[in-house]
């Protein structure tokens, strides 16, 4: 009787440890609540009602780097902000991932001048770049899905 009886024997699912860990990592990835500029507004839109990032188990933005797995660098990184951003990244626990959202964070965008770091990858390692000025919420979601795909290919043997 019960669900198991009706659906047949579902008692055992075989998988690899790697796949199980990577699946867990993708399904409850908590981004850091960390907005810099215009892209942060689109990041908020992604979180909010219409685009609803909670479909991917990612609605919980953590204001503290100690509790977050993913840093979405949303906006232009200035030379004054760069050391702060690096410190935040250093404070995040492993495994940690970085999405560079928007043109400014990816390569400086239209601001090639004295104030803006020409790409956040000069400071922290970046996993996924999302183009756009600012990227649409769909583009950010696509970037996040790309990161999920990347995580699913990670191997325990490569853990440092």
């Amino acid at each position: 009787m019960g669900v198991a009886g009706k659906l047949g024997n579902l008692g055992v699912v075989t998988t690899t440890l790697e796949a199980a860990i990577n699946w867990g990592r993708t399904k409850s990835m908590w981004p850091m609540l960390f907005g810099l500029a215009c892209c942060a507004i689109e990041m908020m839109s992604t979180q909010a009602s219409v685009y609803d990032l909670s479909r991917f188990g990612m609605e919980l933005m953590r204001p503290s780097p100690r509790q977050s797995d993913l840093m979405i660098v949303a906006g232009r990184v200035t030379r004054k902000m760069a050391p702060v951003l690096r410190q935040l990244y250093d404070q995040m626990p492993d495994p940690k991932y970085v999405i560079s959202m928007g043109d400014c964070a990816s390569c400086g965008g239209i601001f090639n001048n004295y104030a803006i770091v020409q790409g956040v990858d000069e400071i922290v390692p970046v996993d996924v770049y999302v183009a756009g000025c600012p990227p649409r919420p769909e583009q950010l979601i696509h970037g996040i899905m790309t990161l999920h795909e990347k995580i699913k290919t990670q191997r325990i043997a490569d853990w440092a």
Binding site: L36, A37, C38, I41, G75, R76, T78, K80, M81, V84, I110, F111, N112, N113, Y114, A115, I116
Partner: peptide, 30 residues
Amino acid sequence: VGYLHTGIEKSMESKTYEQAITMTDRMDYL
């Protein structure tokens, strides 16, 4: 303040008047 200082006013000096409009969008992004 200054953690988001983008140098927009200075960058606008190196763009033609019409090109510089794109810079103004990104000041107050709301």
